Simulated scan of single mutants.
Amino acid sequence: MNTATLRQLEYFVAAADTGTVSAAALRCSASQAAVSTALNELERGLGIQLFVRRTAKGVRLTKSGERALPIARRMLSDARELELLAAAEASEAAGPLRVACTSALSPRVLPALAEAFRAEHPLVDLDLVDGLASDVERMVLRGEADACLLYRRQLESDLDSRTVREVVPYAVLAADHPLAGRDRVALQDLASEPLLLVNPEGSRGVIERLLEEADVSPKRGWAFSNPETVRAMVARGLGYSVFSGRPISLESFDGGRVAYVPLADPIAPNEVVLATPKGQRMTARLQALQDLLMKDSVLEALG
């Protein structure tokens, strides 16, 4: 059968309630011809007769019409409920919100973000996950997450993005490295040492593009999925790395010490971005997310 439209159901209920097509048209602010046509189309689409038409005496429900009327009322009521829900979605920050974040950023931003949501938007059912940059992008593209947080240089997919904060790159060196005490260090000065990277799929491309900007060919070292493994390796003098943003701690996971030294190379700053599907409607929950990401407590956590 053809799907009944809400407009046809509205005219059907109005005609049943008022008893005439003309009165139904007046109630629905439509022409009599439009209501009559819609009722005929509804009957043809359903394959049943809803009314007995009586000249000069209006319309009377058939047995089929009597059975269909409460169903039509429920469908119209559900449609109104849906409209109210949509209105609430647009104006009130409540309901589910899933945010994916790269593993490199998650220790910095997610705790501060979760705390801000709990304080300011307790009705939001916040779900936070982290992973590789490619994974969090795929989650957004597949509708498995509403938004993701990652570095601009990691963004590969066709997503809408908004800059949250610019972050400058640092060379990460062992605390006793000969260059650790400098105000700035050039990547060329480190080119003879192994470059240790945070996971090949998530960050290798980011650092490679950064090195290309500095016109440096690095000596290849290991790559690990966990940033703390990289920091621990650096702390033991097994190579150097490049991280974005200010240091969270100068101590590695196993108790070693590292130093963060700003780069002297003329490299454009990286950006932390919030990425969402192309053309996604701005809900109150997403607006709350954007607003909270601009709070000082969250921005300070990003470095």
Rank of each mutant, 00 (worst) to 15 (best):
A15P: 01
A268D: 08
R220N: 10
P277K: 11
L85I: 06
L26R: 10
G279H: 12
R80A: 14
D254Q: 11
A88P: 06
C101P: 03
L39P: 00
A15R: 08
E115L: 13
S192N: 15
N199R: 05
P122T: 01
P277N: 12
K57I: 04
P107M: 08
P169F: 00
L289M: 13
L190E: 01
A14C: 04
A186D: 13
R281S: 05
L159E: 02
K219I: 14
A147H: 06
G303V: 10
G237V: 09
P70V: 11
L42G: 05
V99C: 09
E120F: 01
P218F: 10
G19M: 12
M1W: 00
A90V: 03
N40E: 11
E208N: 09
A72N: 00
G95F: 07
A25F: 04
R118N: 08
R44Y: 01
D160N: 14
M139T: 01
P269D: 09
H177A: 14
S36K: 07
S203E: 14
D146T: 07
V198C: 12
R74H: 04
E201Y: 12
R257Q: 09
A104H: 05
G19F: 08
G239M: 00
D78I: 05
V172E: 08
Q49A: 09
A174G: 09
R165T: 13
V185L: 12
L61M: 06
V99R: 02
S64P: 02
K63Y: 06
V258I: 15
E208D: 13
V261I: 04
E66I: 12
G65L: 05
E166Q: 10
V230K: 02
R165V: 15
T18G: 09
D127R: 15
M139A: 14
I267D: 02
E213R: 07
A116E: 11
S244M: 15
A232Q: 12
S249R: 14
A180I: 13
A16G: 08
I48C: 03
A301K: 03
S203P: 06
E212S: 08
S157P: 05
E271S: 13
V258R: 00
M139Q: 15
V234C: 00
T229K: 07
A259L: 03
R281Y: 06
R220A: 14
A174S: 15
P200N: 13
D189L: 11
E81L: 06
A68K: 01
S252H: 08
